[in-house]
Design a binder for these strands. Structure first.
Lengths: 105, 105
DNA sequence: TACTACGGTCTATGATATAAACTGGTTTCA
DNA sequence: TGAAACCAGTTTATATCATAGACCGTAGTA
C-alpha cells in the first residue's frame, strides 16, 4: 500500500463501487444475458432498487437492456457492454491494489 | 464468484466501504498514530470532509482520537482501534472474495 | 492592535440509495 | 363476465450521506 494507490481510492468509479450495482454488474458479467427476475433472486435487492440501479448502469453505458415477451408476459433482460466489462475490470484492478498482499501460505 | 459471495456484496460494511473513510482507515492502519494534517496531505480530502469522516469513524469505534498541542498549536491525532482493525480485515476478506482469481502468471 | 495563518469544526447543499406505492396488463376462479 | 389476485416492472417520496465552503478561536507578526 503506497501513497499513489491511496489516492486512487478516491478515484474509484462510484457507478461500480456502489454495492447494489456491483452485485448487478458482477452477475451480468458472468452470463451472456440475465433476466430481471433472475437478478432479483440472486442479488436479493428489492424490485424498485433493482430497477433504478439497472437504469443507472444503462445510462452509464455499462449494460444494455432488452425488453421482450415470454408468451404474453413482459421480460426485461440485461447484458454487459464492452464498456461495462472494461469498467469492472479496472475497478477490480484498483481494489486489488489496495489489498494487502496475501502471505504465501 | 459464487452466489453466496454475491450476497455478501450487499453486506459490505458501508462505514469502511466509503472511499473517503477507506482511505483514512488504510492510512491509520499502517501507522501507530497519524495527525490530521498528515491525513489531509496523503488522502487529498478537504479539511471539512476529513474532519467529518474521521468523526464518523470514531463514532463507529474504528479509530481513537487524541487531541493535544505541539507547543501552543492544537494537534489532532488518530489511531486505529482493534475493532477498526477487525473491520478493515473482514472488509478486505469480503472484497477479495469477489475478485476473479488471478491467473498463475 | 490589526492582520494574516493555523488547525480544525459546523452546516447548508446536493446527490444518492432505497423501498413503498403505483401501473398496466394477465391469469384464475366463482 | 366480473372481481380478485398476480406478474413484471417503474415512479416517487423519503431519508441518508458525502462534500466543501463558511466559520471560529487561537497564534504568530508587523
Amino acid at each position: 500500500m503506497n501513497e499513489a494507490a491511496l489516492k486512487t481510492i478516491l478515484d474509484l468509479d462510484r457507478m461500480v463501487h456502489e454495492p447494489a450495482r456491483l452485485a448487478i454488474l458482477t452477475v451480468v458479467a458472468a452470463a451472456e444475458q440475465v433476466e430481471f427476475l433472475f437478478l432479483l433472486k440472486v442479488t436479493g435487492l428489492s424490485k424498485g432498487n433493482l430497477s433504478v440501479q439497472a437504469q443507472k448502469l444503462e445510462a452509464a453505458g455499462y449494460v444494455r437492456t432488452t425488453k421482450g415477451f415470454r408468451g404474453r408476459i413482459p421480460v426485461t433482460s440485461f447484458a454487459i457492454t464492452s464498456e461495462g466489462r472494461k469498467a469492472l475490470a479496472s475497478y477490480h484492478a484498483q481494489i486489488r491494489a489496495l489489498l494487502p498482499k496475501l502471505p504465501k501460505k
